[in-house]
Design a protein around this nucleic acid. Structure first.
Length: 918
RNA sequence: GGGCAAUUAGCUCAGCUGGUUAGAGCGCCACAUUGACAUUGUGGAGGUCACAAGUUCGAAUCUUGUAUUGCCCACCA
């Protein structure tokens, strides 16, 4: 059987045959990631290994769209964890012979980027950059800034070891993606899914733009809750400044207190600027339990009030201007800012005797802009919206025979409900459905300049929709699109052929049909991102992509959690002490260590805590692996064997117990890691690799192989480890691979994932080695317990019973690893004077303590063990004497407990004998 | 107000479909320094698995309730 027959792609890349990293003949004593990472990355990139063209042509496509970082600045830990996870997915897929494509890119991040640049310009002394520069110049300035940022991000993504295809890098604001945005807008408009209307929107007076519902956050704030007399009613409010135009009082139709007032009744009330005529409205949305059960409404500045006004066809009046100042309707308060006007208005009402109560301890939620941080003022404004309820999109649900017309909401619901899109962890599915249930029409227009311009043109009362002006006298819409409109297309707009996208004669459908990458790589396999943008982005990708392409954007959504500080706080820019900069960590501990620290011990969708000791711990692991490899290489060197020439593994029959055991263990390891990675259980699989390498391979196999090394097995198992570990720690494994790979093999990144060889399994050897390990551990413990000097050779008698032959065959190991001078094996129990003893299952170990013998101490330790075992035995006896247990528990379990009881009782007997003889 | 999650060693976390004498890493204690590795090795201490009730022969694990913490959604005039 050829050794490592699974390296079928070994000859694809001649570049690697004389690769740069063969400089090291003897490895350095400690691994220095800084010295090698950049060069390894460069060689991967240069070789074309990141491109799907390097994968087998008949491989199944496996695509990941990298969530594009905002082209505004620095990579943070959120990006780092995303890159680490996706790189593991993609490397694993690649090694499994799939045509793996990972598309990188950046996002123009409309509001965020414009803000950053405007802030900078202001810091440089500009008072109002928008006014001073004008639209074109501001856009040019931002574009320049973005180019710098992109360069920074690119280099940082590389630092993480991300094996993405840079030749396919995209940017949400480049021409081909802009074409897709325009085409989708036009298509949606034609289908009646995009409309323009006067609706209530979230207006950010600070940023001077609307924002979407998802960009509004609520902050708890303590304020004053005023109750005023309003005609015959008492009404309460926290916002008296909005009350100028109020001319409706609303109450629940069933509220008995107000039974005598009929819907439509009018009355006169003295109010802020004199008497007003008000109308009674009965509406079920009013909660009779809250306050007085009566309220006045301000439809222009409140979502709920707007809805009530719409229901009853009431008038709406604007009170607050878009600059956040009161309008003329406020009379003497005209032009005043809200904070300024509020106390004055209250004062005036009080003077009129209309203030009934002022509750100072009122806590309410204040709407704040997530981006700008300023107060959100609901306003009625002429804006563009996506209709999420109109049932006009043909969609064929899983399991149904033909396409039906569905709404965007319904499609979004359907694809997740039917499992076309699987969300990991699945509990986020619930969150997603809940969000859809509450989804209102999506306001997509923004009053900022940095972004995709709305492809709509006006001439007088004429309107035309399309990317190009129908004629010279037409003016384009001033607004731009919400940034999520363009990033919602990301999984496929990045796969569109830019040449086809530049051809204005083609329709969107034709562009997609004629784009080879789209045809080959869409839908993508997995979307990996933070759960915090499930709504912003993931949901919108599903919405837009199913509509525009008829395909789901991805089959699996894998959501990761937030990375927090050691004490569970959010890392924030405003508090630099809490921040861990991934680049600092890479330069200190290496990218591999950082990657492991963010993956192992973390589960999907859960927040995790990161701190430097954790990263250092994984750095130690990487170094352990390095030194294990160093050991293997030194063994080969001493024997005059070139590890690169090692090709065949001897037949099992000719191998030592330890060799057979480690081969068995490594075969089992393959199965476990493969299963774990296929199921996206990265933490479990990573943990398994960690303990295999450290606790089994290094601590036992390498120790046992000292003096009796089988070079073929050493190199074979090491190669296996490097392959299995490669997705997690690409740099160090690639570096070491260069030392131990077969000469004709190429880089590790393109090696095939190992398949288990059943013939190499030997469970008996594995179990036998465990017996030896237990014996060695027990002798070491005896030495330690009885303070035997570390250098002192000891005399040991082992009563091996059925294991006698096995242990005798491993005598040399026992002698060396426990510093045993005189070692005697017997089949039957013997009496050893002045000895400390350990009792394993069917094995007794007696360590002669001549000269060191301390009867008191020995007695003490025996008594302790006796107590422990007695407790255990009584537990087992209790179980076994319980009839229901014996009757109902599975037979194997009962037998197992019986065996354990017998063994433990035997041990106890021995201990009692020893105690008697002391 | 509605929903979701967490609670296991000093700290950070595993423990999957109920059966382990409840595990790991870091930290701690003792010992070890020229042969892969002190970014190390050997051995050890340390846990009523938040609490209560229930289901079961058997519960860290399942059910219900309670408490504490965190998050998401709704937005109360």
């Amino acid at each position: 059987m050829p050794f490592l027959s699974d390296c079928h792609r070994s000859t694809c890349f001649p570049f690697f045959a004389q690769s740069f990293w063969y400089n090291f003949i003897v490895l350095e004593k400690a691994y220095d990631p800084k010295a090698v990472e950049d060069a390894i990355y460069a060689s991967w990139e240069k070789s074309g290994a990141f491109k799907p063209e390097s994968c087998p042509k008949d491989g199944e496509p496996f695509t990941i769209s990298m969530p594009p970082p905002n082209a505004t600045g620095q990579l943070h830990l959120g990006h780092a964890v995303m890159l680490a996870l996706e790189d593991i997915f993609i490397r694993y897929a690649r090694m499994n012979g799939k045509r793996a494509l990972w598309v990188p890119g950046t996002d123009h991040a409309a509001i965020a980027t414009e803000n950053v640049v405007i802030k900078r310009l202001k810091e440089q002394g500009m008072k109002d950059p928008r006014k001073e520069l004008g639209r074109e110049k501001l856009i040019a300035t931002i574009a320049e800034f973005v180019e710098e940022s992109k360069a920074t991000i690119r280099s940082q993504v590389r630092k993480m070891g991300s094996s993405c295809d840079w030749s396919r890098e995209r940017y949400t604001f480049e021409p081909s993606l802009n074409r897709c945005v325009n085409e989708v807008f036009v298509k949606m408009h034609a289908d009646g899914l995009i409309y323009r209307g006067h609706r209530i929107v979230n207006w950010d007076p600070k940023l001077q733009t609307t924002v979407s519902d998802d960009e509004v956050v609520y902050k708890e704030e303590k304020g004053v809750f005023f109750t005023f007399q309003y005609g015959p009613f008492q009404i309460s409010t926290a916002r008296p400044e909005t009350k100028f135009g109020d001319k409706y009082v609303v109450m629940h139709p069933d509220d008995k207190r107000y039974k005598r007032y009929k819907h439509g009744d009018t009355f006169e009330a003295e109010w802020i600027n004199g008497p007003v005529r008000a109308t009674v409205i009965k509406d079920e949305s009013v909660d009779p339990e809250f306050g007085t059960g009566v309220m006045t409404i301000t439809p222009w500045h409140d979502h709920i009030d707007f809805e009530i006004a719409e229901r009853h066809g009431l008038e709406k009046e604007q009170i607050i201007g878009f600059d956040g100042r009161l309008l003329e309707i406020a009379g003497e308060f005209f032009g005043k800012k809200i904070e300024e006007a509020r106390p004055l208005i209250v004062e005036k009402l009080k003077a009129k005797g209309l203030l009934v109560k002022a509750d100072e301890n009122y806590v309410h939620n204040k709407a704040v802009s997530q981006r700008g941080g300023g107060s959100i003022e609901p306003q009625i404004k002429l804006q563009w919206f996506i209709d999420v309820n109109k049932e006009v999109v043909p969609w064929q649900q899983k399991g149904s025979k033909k396409a039906e017309k569905m709404s965007l909401k319904q499609i979004m619901h359907s694809v997740v409900h039917h499992g076309d899109v699987e969300i990991i962890p699945d509990r986020f599915g619930k969150t997603y459905f809940h969000w859809i249930d509450n989804l209102r029409d999506w306001c997509i227009s923004r009053q900022i300049w940095w972004g995709h311009r709305i492809p709509v043109w006006y001439r007088g009362t004429d309107t035309a929709v399309g990317a190009k002006a129908p004629g010279p006298e037409w003016n384009q819409d001033e607004d731009t699109l919400d940034t999520w409109f363009s990033s919602a297309l990301w999984t496929w707009s990045t796969l569109v052929d830019p040449k086809k996208a530049a051809d204005s004669t083609l329709s969107l459908e034709e562009i997609l049909k004629q784009s080879p990458d789209f045809q080959a790589f869409h839908p993508t396999a997995v979307m990996e991102t933070g759960y915090d943008i499930l709504f912003f982005w993931v949901a919108r990708m599903i919405l837009m992509t199913t509509y525009a392409t008829g395909q789901i954007p991805f089959k699996t959504v894998y959501l990761h959690g937030l990375i927090r500080t050691r004490d569970g706080r959010k890392m924030s820019k405003s508090d630099p002490e809490t921040m861990i900069d991934p680049l600092d960590m890479i330069s200190k501990y290496g990218a591999d260590a950082l990657r492991l620290s963010m993956i192992v011990g973390q589960s999907a969708g859960a927040d995790s805590r990161l701190y430097e000791e954790k990263i250092a711990g994984y750095r130690n692991f990487i170094n352990k692996l390095w030194n294990a490899s160093r050991f293997v290489l030194m063994q080969c060197e001493q024997a005059g064997i070139d590890p690169k020439m090692i090709d065949k593994l001897p037949e099992n029959a000719s191998l030592s117990l330890a060799d057979r055991a480690v081969l068995h263990a490594s075969e089992c390891l393959i199965a476990d890691i493969t299963k774990g990675l296929s199921a996206y259980s990265l933490s479990e699989a990573g943990d398994r690799l960690y303990s295999f390498v450290w606790d089994y391979f290094c601590d036992w196999y390498l120790e046992l192989s000292k003096g009796t090394a089988n070079h073929a097995v050493l190199v074979h198992v090491l190669r296996r480890i490097l392959k299995l570990l490669h997705p997690y720690c690409p740099f160090v494994t690639e570096q070491l691979w260069g030392q131990v790979k077969k000469t004709e093999d190429g880089a590790l990144i393109l090696q095939s994932w190992p398949a288990p060889h059943e013939k190499r399994k030997d469970a008996k050897a594995f179990a036998d080695l465990q017996v030896l390990i237990d014996v060695i551990s027990s002798i070491r413990k005896l030495r330690n317990d009885h303070n035997v000097e570390p250098g002192k050779e000891i005399t040991v008698t082992i009563v091996g019973k059925k294991f006698c032959e096995l242990l005798e065959s491993q005598e040399a190991h026992i002698r060396r690893m426990c510093k045993v001078g005189s070692l005697t094996f017997t089949t039957d129990s013997v009496k050893v004077e002045n000895a400390a003893s350990a009792f394993l299952s069917d094995i007794e170990i007696h360590l002669s303590l001549a000269g060191l013998f301390d009867a008191g101490k020995l007695k003490e330790s025996l008594l302790r063990e006796q107590a422990e075992l007695t407790k255990y035995v009584s537990g087992l006896q209790g179980k076994l004497s319980n009839k229901s247990f014996v009757d109902k528990a599975p037979k194997e379990l009962v037998d197992e407990q019986k065996t354990k009881l017998a063994e433990t009782e035997e041990k106890l007997k021995k201990i009692e004998e020893r105690l008697k003889n002391l």
